[in-house]
Amino acid sequence: MTSRESYAFQTGADGTDSAIAARASGHGIRDTVTRYYSLTKPGVLYGNVLTAAAGFLLASRGAVNLWLFVALIVGTSMVIASATVLNNVLDRDIDTVMERTKKRATVTGSIGARNATIFSILLGVIGIAILIVWTNWLVVAVGVGGFLVYVVLYGMWSKRMSIHGTLVGSVSGAAPILAGYVAVTGAVDISAVLVFLMLFFWQMPEFYSIAIYRHDEYAEAGIPVISVTRGIEYTKVQILLYTVAFVVSTMLLPVFGHVGIVYAVVMGALGVYWIWLGVKGLRAADSAAWARKMFGFSLVMILALCLMLSIGPILP
């Protein structure tokens, strides 16, 4: 249950995990723990946990089962961490080329592939066990499915071989919010579908923006992202289309009565601004600078969305 490593508050697109590993250069226990911690891609981890919590609170509608919430967050965190650690092991060849990932512990050799793999297995087994014992089988299915999509379909296959890698990765990136929702309901309803779509659509302009301002790095690493294979102008159009799709999906939730007017006003206003920013990008002379702004606002959008999903059901 994890998102693509493109998340930067979710992604580590700024190389945060690499920077954490680089700072832990000693041989003491603290530095060793820090290096293993960096393998979990903390930005990815915390971002996904935030969306899982938002899905849970939306479904709870003010009546929070605290023990179930804790079990969901701890189990989900460990499954996500397991996937990101394993992704570090699999991506060593790519990470040696890209500037932002050259200092990851699995690249520098400060943590060997074998030890990292064992760490990943331990995290995954414990995380799944927690979800099995204290949540429900639908949460477990979403968790295992998200893990497999991220590690196998995205990390091992589509990211390296297909322009559609982002689409595949976005499926796993939308899994945590779905898991949080079904942990409460035990069933998939229209709200579950909508929150899944919101996260799926949000990731496309978010990552495509990164693909523009890090175009040269992806090209050098041989990763067939959209900006490399189809060009930057085509990517801008796709960013705008997916931004519109995201905003529409957020506006459908009040239609079904799960959130109220406050949610609609806040998300509507932010959504209109994001679309306007996307339209400006079609004529932007400095595509990289515009893409950085678009990416930065995507973080505002996801934080606002998680907040409004969490408190929307108890507001007017």
Rank of each mutant, 00 (worst) to 15 (best):
H164V: 14
G112K: 02
I126R: 07
K236E: 09
G231H: 07
G186S: 04
V171Q: 11
S209E: 03
P176G: 04
D216H: 06
V168K: 08
E220S: 12
G257Y: 03
T166Y: 06
Q238S: 07
W134I: 06
L240G: 08
G143D: 01
S172I: 08
S227F: 04
W137V: 08
G127N: 11
I132A: 06
S162C: 04
Y150H: 00
A174I: 10
S209F: 04
F147A: 01
V144R: 01
G173E: 11
I239F: 09
T243W: 09
L253Y: 01
I190C: 04
S249Y: 07
P254R: 02
V125F: 13
T135E: 12
W157I: 15
I128R: 08
L178F: 06
V247D: 12
P224Q: 09
I210M: 04
A183I: 02
V152H: 00
L167D: 06
G124L: 10
W157K: 11
P176H: 09
F201A: 13
E217Q: 13
G112T: 13
T243R: 11
V188T: 03
P205S: 07
E206A: 13
V182I: 03
L122A: 14
I177M: 14
I118H: 05
T235G: 10
I190N: 10
A183G: 01
P205I: 07
P205K: 09
E206M: 14
E220G: 03
A129L: 15
V149L: 00
M156W: 06
I212R: 02
H164P: 00
I210R: 02
G127F: 08
A187N: 13
I130L: 15
G222I: 13
V144L: 03
F119R: 09
F256C: 04
T235K: 07
G257W: 02
V142D: 01
S191E: 14
L138R: 05
E233A: 14
Y213M: 05
G173T: 11
F246W: 15
Y208P: 01
T166V: 13
